[in-house]
Amino acid sequence: MSEEGVVKKFMFVNRKAPYGTIYALESLEVVLISAAFDQDVSLAFLDDGVFQLKKGQQTKGIENKNFSPTYRALDGYDIEKLYVEKEALDARGLTEDDLLVDVTVMSSAELGKLMEEQDVVLSF
């Protein structure tokens, strides 16, 4: 890299449910690749994006790859900042216990503040 040693804050904003569109899977793949560049990476889950982290996904019947276990690999990639919007969970009848990874739950406003602090926001 030309700017060796420069660490920027990257936030991946995930707002789509996992199987209806390709956004969630595409985001996850870019996140895994980004881990190779030693940047300050965080993931935010808003709106239907919180469904990506729902426990108990069984995709055999729709003949799709179940990529939800991969979120549990993120820790091994040193991606530990996962933020979930509380309002999004509430609106969907979910709580933190429904999610398959450890996350930080925060309000929309807190999330908006974090978003402002990023150098780069990647929208999915």
Binding site: L32, A36, K65, P69, R72, A73, G76
Partner: peptide
């Protein structure tokens, strides 16, 4: 089997 991906080399090495 656990994570549904092949790990990056750095991750594999650590694991």
């Amino acid at each position: 089997n656990e994570f549904q991906i092949a790990p990056a080399v750095r991750v594999l090495t650590k694991a």
